[in-house]
Amino acid sequence: MPTRFARGWHCLGLEKKYRDGKPHTVNAFGKKLVVFSDSKGDLKILDAYCRHMGGDLSQGEVKGDEIACPFHDWRWGGDGRCKQIPYARRVPLRARTQAWPAMCQDGMLFVWNDPEGNPPIAEQAIPRIDGGPDTEGWTDWAWYETRVDTNCREIIDNLVDMAHFFYVHHAFPTYFKNTFEGHTAAQIQRGVSREDLRPAEKAIGGPKRTGNTSIATYHGPSFMIDDLIYHYESLDDVRTVLINCHYPIDENSFMLMYGISLQRPEVADDEDPEVLAQKMVQTTRIGFEQDVAIWRNKTRIDNPLLCEEDGPVYQLRRWYDQFYTDVADLEPEMTDRFEFELDTTKPVEAWQREIEVNLARRAAALESQDA
């Protein structure tokens, strides 16, 4: 694995978290950063340790447009320049620290990382979300954050993993395709729910899902937008946006975040659409946490032994390599368009037989109890 961190935009969470007038600590890219809001409300990101004598700026105080070091009160602006030293006649010309490019979009704060020190690349811009909290009739972000102690590549592999849907998420794809091109990598799938297992819906008390249609796309190395349509037995289709994003803490851990927003469903007059929407959100959360449990406990396999139905794991990893490679050294196979449509015939046949066996066993057990 490379010893550098990926080039690209990384989400640091919801921007409102950082707009309380206080400095915030973010451990990312093997460093400690400080995030603060200036008097105009613009969010700024700097290296957290003061270049003077090493004080921790994230433990300091926001004073006007600057962050003040708690050690000697050196005042640092969002551009990385020291603006004033209250006890000094002048500020040294070389009094600068690293300022990180920041961007706010769709209610989230992003930071740009580039090991070569270059500014953001226009082609790697994060697109605006179609739907979500800024759209009328949609719920606010349900946002969750958790630390995972493994290399962040492990979460990327999920994009091509068709088989885990049956064993982890209690559903299975009837159609599954991947496309990689430029800085984007997508998973297109249509799936149906398992009739023999519905623990999430039963736990939450939400409506019965029959399946889903999903287009999940990574935009750069760490930010995925999943445009989901859930199909229900007793409701019209419901659109959901699932954000799956992370930033590396160091080489062996990352901060995983995911956000859920959905279009409020049409319900009968005696039902509360907000209550039903929150049940749907919680069902989606349970599904995502099933992945998290796997990531927390698996190990990294650099040269996995694969069968044909495991999909283009190595091609995905080659696409992912581009973010750890100097721009001048990029190779066409990292960014050229690649498509792979997986033949789901064999797995679907096997899984349907397994479901039938499970249902038959359940029916026999019920008959035995009645007898």
Rank of each mutant, 00 (worst) to 15 (best):
G21D: 01
T240I: 14
R96T: 10
W112R: 11
F165G: 05
L242N: 09
P248G: 07
F172H: 12
E61K: 14
R361H: 12
L359S: 03
E274G: 00
V148G: 08
E233R: 13
A142C: 02
E349Q: 14
V313N: 04
S261I: 03
Q59A: 14
Q59R: 14
I301P: 00
Q98L: 14
L342I: 12
D370M: 12
T97Q: 12
K31G: 00
A186F: 07
T283C: 09
V275A: 15
K83F: 04
M280D: 01
D161S: 08
R285Q: 09
F323D: 06
D310V: 04
F223H: 15
W138S: 04
H164D: 02
R51W: 02
N27D: 11
F165I: 00
T335D: 01
A277K: 09
T283I: 14
T139A: 12
P199T: 02
D310Q: 06
R4I: 13
M257G: 03
C307Y: 08
E116R: 01
C104Q: 11
A185D: 04
T217S: 09
L359N: 06
I121N: 09
R317K: 09
N212K: 11
E331P: 00
H52Q: 03
T25M: 12
C82T: 06
F223G: 05
A364E: 11
N252S: 08
Q322R: 11
F254V: 00
R361K: 15
T139L: 10
F340T: 02
L305Y: 04
M53E: 06
G211C: 05
Q189L: 15
W112P: 00
A68T: 07
H231G: 02
Y314S: 11
G220F: 11
Q189D: 09
A48G: 10
F29A: 08
A163K: 15
M162T: 01
Y144I: 05
E181C: 13
V313K: 07
F176T: 05
V348C: 13
A268K: 14
P265Y: 02
N118V: 00
K83C: 08
G54I: 02
G77P: 03
F340Q: 11
T335L: 14
P115Y: 04
S222L: 06
Y232Q: 01
F340G: 01
K202H: 10
F172L: 08
A268L: 07
A122Q: 13
R337I: 09
G287R: 04
Y49I: 07
Q282K: 15
Y314F: 14
I301W: 08
A28S: 10
M334G: 05
A6K: 09
L242V: 05
Q263T: 01
P173A: 12
K17Y: 11
A163V: 03
G30N: 07
D269E: 12
T25V: 07
A88G: 01
K32G: 01
H246G: 00
T97M: 14
V168W: 01
V62A: 07
E233V: 02
H169Y: 01
A203F: 13
C152G: 05
